[in-house]
């Protein structure tokens, strides 16, 4: 009996062993290694020939100073912020609107619309950017075809400020459906009694949506906002795909692209690691700060 009890005490650790080992190997160890790289640099001794010519030396925070004062990284961060400021409100606004419309009792073709709007979730970011990339190209796009037919030329969507719109559109297309389903699901969980009487009292559906439904689904709106913002900061596949189609997308358009270029195109592993650590720290600080604010506000409302 005693041995079974020991077994029972150890069992959960046994069940968790695969996850703990994988976490150690593919999360903890790489993070530790990135920190190590970011604090070191390679020094070339003598002529730089031979086995011991290249030596890794401790450089303290030098790599971080370089990364944080690099105008390209700051410009990239600025571009991503601008892109996010366009993307997140548009995408979540549309997702909320569609979810509320789906929740109305008198809407038709609901199953079809829901499925069609969710469909882009099944399309990889690379393919989505590819499809839109072609739709942006004057030589193959139906939009330009129609514009030319009536004698206009249309803007070049892959240049200058239009580029932000082009990238935002790809992400809105890809992300609205998933967020719509998350919001819609939590709308379905609201008991109808809560607004049935308001409806009988003559409240319009808009009033019901604004005063009753939206406050009740606030937790899932906060959640979708949080995850969408994080995903925005990580933009990589979309600008990478559009790059071959235009010359106005630099290798360092987003911080992610810069890390990739520094590490694998230019071979600057140590500075790339420092930039990657900076990205991680910024993400974590933003996340925990955001969660703290949300928790405090929830605590205030429920004394």
């Amino acid at each position: 009996m005693a041995s079974t009890r020991t077994g029972r005490r150890l069992a959960p650790y046994g069940f968790l062993a695969p996850a703990i080992i994988l976490f150690g190997l593919f999360f903890a160890l790489p993070i530790g290694y990135a920190l190590h790289l970011s604090l070191h640099s390679v020094q070339v001794k003598g002529l730089g020939i031979g086995r011991n010519a290249r030596e890794e030396v401790w450089v303290g925070l030098d790599n971080f100073t370089t990364a944080l004062t690099d105008p390209e990284l700051l410009a990239g961060a600025g571009r991503v912020l601008r892109y996010g400021a366009m993307l997140v409100p548009t995408m979540l606004g549309l997702a909320l609107l569609f979810a509320l419309l789906l929740d109305l009792p008198r809407t038709r073709f609901r199953a079809f619309s829901r499925l069609a709007i969710f469909l882009p979730y099944a399309v990889p970011g690379i393919v989505a950017s590819l499809l839109w990339g072609f739709l942006y190209l004057p030589s193959v796009s139906p939009g330009y075809f129609l514009l030319r037919a009536v004698g206009f030329s249309g803007p070049d969507l892959l240049q200058g400020d239009w580029l932000f719109l082009a990238l935002t559109n790809i992400a809105v297309w890809g992300g609205t459906g998933f967020n719509m389903i998350v919001i819609y699901t939590s709308l379905r969980a609201v008991p109808p009694e809560l607004y049935e009487s308001a409806r009988l009292d003559g409240c319009s559906e808009t009033q019901i949506a604004l005063r009753i439904k939206i406050p009740l689904i606030m937790p899932s709106l906060v959640l979708t906002f949080f995850f969408s913002t994080i995903a925005t900061l990580q933009v990589f596949a979309e600008p990478m795909t559009l790059r071959p189609l235009t010359n106005s997308l630099s290798w360092t358009w987003s911080p992610y692209m810069k890390v990739y270029r520094d590490a694998f195109v230019q071979g600057g592993l140590h500075s790339a690691a420092a930039t990657a650590v900076v990205i991680a720290v910024v993400t974590l600080v933003l996340s925990f700060g955001f969660l703290k604010v949300v928790n405090r506000r929830t605590a205030e409302r429920t004394p």
Partner: peptide
């Protein structure tokens, strides 16, 4: 039927289907 709501949802559906149809 609320035709306005239906119309807006169908507009969203078309927007999502256009690149796939293309």
């Amino acid at each position: 039927t609320s035709w306005l709501a239906t119309f807006l949802l169908l507009l969203g559906a078309i927007y999502c289907l256009v690149p796939v149809l293309w």
